[in-house]
Amino acid sequence: MQPLHNKTIIITGASRGIGRAMALRFARDGANVTLAAKSAEPHPKLPGTIHSVAQEVEQAGGKALPVQLDVRDENAVKEMVERTAAAFGGVDAVINNAGAIKLSGVEHTPMKRFDLMHQVNTRAVMATAQAALPWLKKSGLGHILNLSPPVNLNPKWFAQYSPYTLTKYSMSMLTLGMAQEFRRYNIAVNSLWPQTLIATAAVEFEAGGKQALDRARSPEIMADAAYAILSDKTQRRSGEWLIDEQVLRDAGVTDFSAYTYNPDAGQALMTDLFVD
Rank of each mutant, 00 (worst) to 15 (best):
R217Y: 11
D224P: 11
F205D: 09
A226G: 07
E206T: 15
T175W: 00
M178P: 03
K233M: 12
A199W: 00
F182K: 00
Q180Y: 01
A228R: 11
K233H: 15
G177M: 06
P194Y: 03
I187A: 06
Q195W: 12
T234C: 01
D214G: 04
E181R: 07
I221F: 03
A207M: 11
I198W: 01
N190Y: 04
M178N: 05
Y185N: 14
Q180K: 14
W193L: 08
A212K: 04
E220A: 14
I229K: 07
R217W: 09
A179F: 09
T234R: 13
T175V: 14
N186F: 07
A201F: 10
A225G: 04
A228Q: 12
T175Y: 08
G177D: 05
L174A: 11
L176C: 03
K210W: 08
L174N: 12
Q211N: 12
F205Y: 15
K233D: 07
E206D: 12
L176M: 11
E181K: 10
R184V: 06
A228V: 05
Y227Q: 10
N190S: 15
A226C: 05
K210D: 12
T200V: 09
L197I: 05
M178S: 09
A179P: 02
R184Y: 02
N190W: 04
Y227W: 15
A225S: 08
R215Y: 05
L192N: 00
Q211A: 15
A223M: 04
M173T: 14
I229Y: 02
V203Q: 08
E206K: 09
K233F: 12
G208L: 09
L213N: 03
A201Y: 02
A216V: 04
Q195M: 12
Q180C: 09
S231T: 10
S231Y: 02
A228L: 06
D224R: 10
A212W: 07
G177K: 06
A225K: 07
L230T: 11
L174D: 03
S191D: 12
L213R: 04
L174C: 05
S231P: 01
A207F: 11
S191A: 14
T175E: 05
A207R: 12
A188E: 00
A212Q: 08
P194D: 10
S231V: 04
S191T: 10
R184G: 15
I187P: 03
Q211T: 15
P219T: 07
A216S: 15
L197D: 05
I221R: 10
W193I: 09
Y185S: 10
I187F: 07
A226F: 02
Q180F: 01
E220G: 13
I198R: 00
R184W: 03
R217V: 12
D224W: 00
R215A: 07
A216Q: 01
A202E: 09
A212F: 03
A216H: 03
A179C: 08
Q195K: 12
A199E: 03
